[in-house]
Amino acid sequence: MDLSLFWMIAFLTLCIFALSFIVLQYRVERFIYRGVKKIYDDVSLLESTSFQDQPVTTNMQTLTEEIEKFANNKKVEIETLKIREGYRKEFLGNISHELKTPLFTVQGYILTLLDGAMDDKQIRKKYLVRASKGVERLIYIVRDLDMITRLEAGDLHLELENFDIVELIQGVFDMMEMKAHKKDITLTFDTVYKKPIMVHADRERIQQVVSNLVVNSIKYSKASSTTEVSIEDLVKNKVIVRITDNGEGIQSQNLTRIFERFYRVDKSGSRKEGGSGLGLAIVKHIIEAHKEKIYVESVYGVGSEFSFTLEKTKESTKV
C-alpha cells in the first residue's frame, strides 16, 4: 500500500471519529439537558428560565449538586410555608374568637331583652350598658384591623413634624393616670428631664405607640409596681425610648411572636382587660413605617422592657 494513501485513510478515519465524537457529545448533552429540565419542570423545582444563559454540562456530579441545592432550598421554603400555614390557621382562629365573643354577648343581652326583660327598667339599663360595651369592643377590633391593614399595605400616610418626646410621654402618663391608679401602679420617668428632647416623627402615631406600650405595662404589671420610661442617646441622630415594668414578664418562647396579630401570651386572662389584641402589632408597624426599630427584653417573673428608636432633630438637646 502506498504510504500517502495510508496516511490519507488514517486522517479521514481520525476526522470521522472526531466528528462522530462531537455529534455524539452534543446529542448526549441535549438529551441530558432535556431530561433534567423535564424533571425540574415536572416537580416545579425550577422556573422555566432557570437554564437560560447557563452552559449545558454532562458532568453528573455538577448536576447532582445542582439538584441537591435546589431540593434543599425548596425544602426550606416548604417548611417555612408550613409554619406560616400554622400561623394563618391560628390567626383565623383568634380573629374568629375575638369577634365571636362580643357578638354573642351583645346578641345574648338583646335577645334576653326582647324575650321580656325589657319591661324591667333596672335589668333593661344593665343589659343595654353591657351590650354597649360589647359593641365598643367590636369597634376597637374593626378600627385596629383597618389600621393594621393600611399599615401593612403602606397606605398610612405619616405626618412628620418636630415635637418634644418628653412632653408627649408626660401627656400619656396624664391620660393613663386613673387606669394606673386602680392597680396602684406608678408611672414615672427615670430622671427629671429639664430640657426638651426634640424628635422628628408623626406625633399622633408615636403617641399611639407610647399609649399602647404603657397600657400593656399597666395591664400585665403587678399591683403596687412601677412603669418607668427613659430616653437615651443611641447614636448621633437617634434616641431610644425605653418603657420598663416589673410585672409578670414574658416567657422566652413567646418573645418572638408577641408582635403578631391577636397573639396573646395569656390565652385567657388578658381578654378580661379588653382591647382588640392588635396593640403590639400596630406598634411594630408604626415604628417600622418610620424606618425605625423596636425591641423587647423580658425575664419571666421579673419584668419587661420595650424600646424603640426615633430620629432626633438637629436642635435637640442631648440627654
Rank of each mutant, 00 (worst) to 15 (best):
V106E: 01
Q107W: 12
G108N: 08
G108M: 10
G108S: 11
G108L: 06
Y109M: 03
Y109P: 00
Y109N: 02
Y109G: 01
Y109L: 02
I110S: 04
I110D: 08
I110M: 05
I110F: 13
I110C: 05
L111C: 13
L111A: 11
L111R: 12
T112L: 15
T112G: 13
T112N: 12
T112Q: 10
L113M: 14
L113W: 05
L113E: 05
L114D: 14
L114P: 07
D115G: 12
D115H: 14
D115Q: 14
D115E: 15
G116P: 14
G116R: 08
A117K: 03
A117I: 11
A117H: 01
A117E: 10
A117C: 08
A117V: 10
M118W: 07
M118T: 15
M118N: 14
M118E: 15
D119F: 13
D119W: 08
D119P: 10
D119K: 08
D120T: 13
D120Y: 11
K121H: 11
K121L: 15
Q122D: 13
Q122W: 09
Q122R: 13
I123V: 12
R124I: 08
R124V: 03
R124Q: 11
K125S: 02
K126E: 06
K126N: 06
L128E: 02
L128P: 04
R130P: 00
R130V: 03
A131G: 04
A131W: 00
A131F: 00
A131K: 00
S132M: 06
S132W: 03
K133N: 01
G134N: 02
G134S: 01
V135I: 07
V135Q: 01
V135T: 05
E136S: 07
E136T: 03
E136R: 06
E136M: 12
R137Y: 01
L138W: 03
L138C: 03
L138T: 06
I139S: 08
I139E: 09
Y140V: 04
I141E: 07
I141N: 06
V142Q: 08
V142R: 06
V142F: 12
R143M: 14
R143I: 15
